[in-house]
Each structure stands twice: as C-alpha cells, then as structure tokens.
Write a protein that binds this DNA or RNA. Structure first.
Length: 419
RNA sequence: GUGAGAAUAGUUCAACGGUAGAGCCCCGGCUUGUGGUGCCGGUUGUUGCGGGUUCGAAUCCCGUUUCUCACCCCA
C-alpha cells in the first residue's frame, strides 16, 4: 500500500517548525519596514511570457527549470521561479510609479523551480526579497546591500561573506562578451564540456566555473573592469566607498556572475554557513537591473533588489531563534457539572486573552492533569463542584504544584501572577 | 540532467539466508479531586513499491519511487 505523499521536492512545513518561520519573517518585515519598504503580494501563476522576457530565454531557470504548462483555455502559464519579474509586472500594471518617485517593495512567498532537490534546495521553496525601484545612484545599491547584511546579522548568522561585482551596462557588455568568446575559443581544449557549451550560451559563466582546468584557463581572461563605461566605473567605486558607511565588509570578485540575464552594473551575494549548506552556501543574491522595467514595457526605470531563500537561511538559525510561544492555561472540570464549568471558565479566560485548553469530555482529574501536562500548560484551573459553591476555582501552578482557591472575579490577575 | 549511498512499528534503531525485535512515544490501570518520577499491562509492521534467485528473502540480484550527498545550477 503506497502511502500518499507530496510530490518530489515539495515539503510540508509543520506546526513545530512554524515558530522559526515566524521569527524569521517577523525579523525581515520589521527590518525592511524600518527602511520604508512595503509588502506586495503577486499571483503565483503568471503568463509564461513574463518570465521568458524578464529573466531571459537562455537562462537555466527559463530553459529547463520552469513549471510551465497550458491551461484549459490554452493560455501559456508558469509557476513563478523568482519574485522580481512579478513585482515589476505588478508595479507597471498598477501604475505604482505614479504614486511616489521611488517605490520600495518587499515580498515573501513560494517560488518553483524544477531542479534536483538537495539540502536547502526544494522545488517549491520560499523566497523573500526587496526591490528598490527608481534610483540609479550607488547610494541605493549601498543601502540595499547594507539592509541585506543587517538582516542576516540580525538573525545571528556569523561569518558572512559579502561579494560584489559589476557587470557593466548593456552598451558595453557585448564588447566584453565578445572579448571573452575570443579568448576562450583559443583555449577550448582546456575547458570542461559545460564551459564549451557556455561559450555559446553564457560565456561570462565560464569565469565562475569550479572545474580547476577552467579556472586556470580563466586566469588571464579579459577583466570586466577594462570594459566598464566611465559611468559604470564611477558607480562601482562610489558603491565601494558607500558600503563602508553602512559598515559592510566586502570582497570584490570580478569573476562573479549571476544566473539571470537582467542584471546590470552591481551584483552581489552573501555567502555563509558553508559547513552546513555545502554547495548551497549562497544565502542572499541580488543586483541591479536597470533594463528590466523597460524590457517589460515600462519607462526606463533603474532598479535594484535582492532575494534570499528562507529554507536555506533557516538551516543556519540556532535553536533560540524562534518566536516565543504563548503559555497555556488548562481548564479541568471535576464533579457534577464539571464539563459545563470548563466551558464557562475557558470562555472567561479567552476573553482575557489567555491561551486556553479545555478537556472536551468528562474524565478523571488525573487524566485531565495529564493532558494539561502534555499541552505544557503553565497553570491548571480546576473547576470543581466544591469551589463552585463559593463561585470559585482552584488554580494550580504546574511547575511546583502549589494551589490556591480563587474567586472567579479575581481569576485573571491571579493567573497573570503565575505566567 | 550526471554520479554515489540510504529506506524495517508513530519515532530512533537491531535482526546480515532460517518464527521481525528493543528503547522512546502513545493508550489503560495502580489513583473518577491532583500531572511530571515509579510500578503493572496493552496496541503497533504486506520490512518504500514491483519483479527475480532460493526449500526459505528485511537480508542476495534487477527495476522503480522517495530521501540524502557530490556535480550542474541557484536562494
């Protein structure tokens, strides 16, 4: 008998995991709202075309990792593989640019990529991200990177490594690309099979190849910085100056590239937890995409953003990084009319905003206290027949077993004392 | 997409060709007005799934699914 289970690469997030999720999400919401970001939620399903145009036809994500299909009306749809394209679509569709000169948007939600699952990598995974739309200055880049670094550090993740690079502008990129193709074509025999393929599809990626032969071959490859426009150059050096104002320590990695076509100028990654995450040690990735808004049909609007994978980040959190759980009050009933009294007392206590568990059926006080113990109640309220005669209940401190009889109208303050 | 390892009770694991077991968890009782510790008792499996070898398979072989790890790629 095969048990029903969720599809490959998907996973359930169980109640026991939620305190950590809530903690992380609350940290993130609080932090980005301190920087003036507001939440946006977009549909999980978009037209396939949005991602093909936004992310790039020849990217791995679009080429082989998307859940794309036709619905019954023959519309070509896809589950979103990342958040940025959808956010920019929503920005344009709803004319958010008319509201403020600068839009700061953040999102949290599930993304879908059909990859081989591994530790910290799922086919449905949760990403949170932020987009700063409308500023081209490096001040924006620096603030956004600073925000991402602050977030990771707020979570208590140590030993993070911030890497930055500049990819230049669309006008200069072809020249650099050509230079790379020319350079590597001469060294084709030294390259791994993947890189030979990349020569056609994405020559920049060769620089980032981990195969030793390739990285040796790449050592004398043309340098991006020789191909940056003056503007891009000063943008990048401004960024480096400004990052120190945000107390961000960083490394310039000229060979770093990123998997999405839309990046221009600044790209960055935050790495950490290589001992736990192995090959998945990039925890935050982002960059500038000045061309994307126009590419999706809007006006030329410079934009920068980042995203991080929640599952991956969660693996790095310590056990104390979780939302605190409200203590429980258990209401037990004994004697004639016990069950009815538990209902009345439970309602009274919930009106006072306590978290209350009640027994649902008559049983011995012993079995009810066992249940109280299982629900890790801090206080048990015993609504017994004897006390009821004086309009009172017994409250029991579940830590030390101390009890007292308390009139019903003094119940709230007496319980508060024990929490 | 490539390569490697794993899968036995709710859970952690044992059994390594000869009757599938233990700890924990869970449930009940000792104790229907007093939980945790204690004692007594109880439930639990087509050994992931499908096939093959064998008198006999959890065990050996093949396939398959899922998970894990390393690539690839990315968050």
């Amino acid at each position: 008998m095969s048990k029903l289970r969720c599809v490959k690469g998907m996973h359930d997030i169980l109640p026991e995991d939620m305190p950590k999720w809530h903690y992380l999400e609350n940290c993130y919401r609080n932090l980005v709202s301190d920087y003036g970001y507001e939440e946006i939620r977009t549909p999980i399903l978009e037209s396939l075309d949005l991602f093909v145009r936004g992310i790039g036809e020849s990217t791995d994500i679009v080429e082989k990792e998307m859940y794309a299909f036709e619905d019954k009306g023959n519309a070509k749809l896809a589950l979103r593989p990342e958040g940025t394209a959808s956010v920019i679509r929503a920005f344009l569709q709803n004319n958010l640019e008319a509201l403020t000169p600068v839009s700061k948007l953040y999102y949290i939600g599930p993304m879908f990529r059909r990859e081989r699952p591994a530790r910290g990598r799922y086919r449905q995974f949760y990403q949170a991200g932020a987009e700063l739309i409308g500023i081209e200055d490096a001040t924006a880049d620096a603030e956004l990177i600073g925000m991402a670094v602050t977030f990771v550090k707020t979570l208590g993740i140590q030993n993070v490594n911030v890497q930055i690079n500049s990819l230049g502008d669309p006008e200069t990129r072809p020249a650099y690309r050509n230079a790379l193709v020319q350079f590597f074509s001469k060294k084709k025999e030294q390259l791994c099979n993947d890189c030979v393929r990349r020569l056609d599809t994405n020559p920049l990626r060769i620089l980032d190849c981990k195969v030793e032969a390739c990285s040796i071959a790449a050592q004398e490859a043309p340098n991006v910085f020789d191909y940056l426009s003056d503007d891009a150059h000063s943008h990048f050096s401004d960024l480096q100056q400004l990052l120190s104002l945000h107390d961000v320590n960083f490394t310039v990695v000229p060979t770093m590239v990123r998997g999405l076509d839309y990046y221009t100028r600044t790209i960055f990654e935050i790495q950490g937890g290589a001992d736990i995450l192995g090959a998945q040690s990039t925890i935050v990735g982002g960059g500038r995409y000045n061309g994307l808004v126009k590419q999706l049909g809007g006006r030329n609007t410079p934009t920068i953003g980042f995203a991080f994978g929640i599952e991956r980040l969660l693996l790095l959190l310590g056990d104390n990084a979780k939302e605190s759980v409200k203590p429980t009050v258990f209401v037990a009933g004994v004697g004639e009319g016990g069950l009815e009294r538990t209902i009345r007392v439970s309602r009274q206590l919930r009106n006072c905003n306590f978290k209350v568990e009640a027994p649902y059926k008559n049983g011995s006080l012993r079995s009810q206290l066992k249940r109280a113990d299982k629900s890790s109640a801090v206080v048990a309220v015993i609504a017994g027949a004897d006390e009821a005669l004086q309009n009172a209940v017994t409250i029991r401190n579940m830590q030390n077993g101390e009890q007292q009889i308390v009139p019903l109208d003094e119940l709230e303050p007496k319980i508060r004392e024990l929490m």
